[in-house]
Simulated scan of single mutants.
Amino acid sequence: MAPWPEVTYLLWDSTFTLLKKFRSDNPTFALTNANGSQLVRREFSKKKDGTEKVGYVNNIAKAYERTCKKIKWKPAKSLMLVRKTGSDTLKSNHQYTNYRQYYLGQAGLTLADRRYTASGYNDFDQSQLWLGNQFDQATDRK
Rank of each mutant, 00 (worst) to 15 (best):
93 N>P: 06
102 Y>H: 10
70 K>C: 04
29 F>T: 09
90 L>F: 08
15 T>Y: 00
125 D>G: 14
72 K>C: 00
11 L>Q: 09
83 R>L: 06
54 V>F: 05
69 K>P: 01
109 L>R: 10
97 T>D: 02
13 D>F: 09
48 K>S: 09
56 Y>K: 00
123 D>I: 00
137 Q>I: 01
6 E>W: 12
70 K>M: 09
102 Y>S: 05
72 K>V: 03
44 F>P: 00
5 P>Q: 14
125 D>F: 15
23 R>I: 09
128 Q>F: 01
22 F>I: 06
135 F>P: 00
138 A>M: 08
51 T>I: 00
129 L>E: 10
127 S>F: 03
20 K>W: 07
97 T>P: 00
75 P>N: 06
38 Q>L: 08
19 L>C: 10
88 D>S: 14
136 D>L: 07
18 L>D: 06
51 T>A: 11
15 T>C: 04
122 N>K: 15
69 K>S: 08
33 N>T: 04
5 P>W: 04
10 L>Q: 09
58 N>Y: 06
123 D>C: 05
2 A>C: 08
105 G>Y: 07
42 R>I: 07
55 G>E: 10
61 A>C: 05
53 K>V: 00
12 W>C: 01
16 F>K: 04
70 K>A: 12
42 R>F: 13
125 D>W: 15
104 L>Y: 00
105 G>K: 07
127 S>M: 04
43 E>V: 12
113 D>K: 15
141 R>I: 03
129 L>C: 11
71 I>A: 04
17 T>K: 13
108 G>K: 12
60 I>D: 02
49 D>Y: 13
141 R>G: 02
12 W>E: 00
86 G>L: 05
39 L>K: 14
82 V>A: 08
29 F>P: 00
130 W>A: 04
56 Y>F: 14
122 N>E: 13
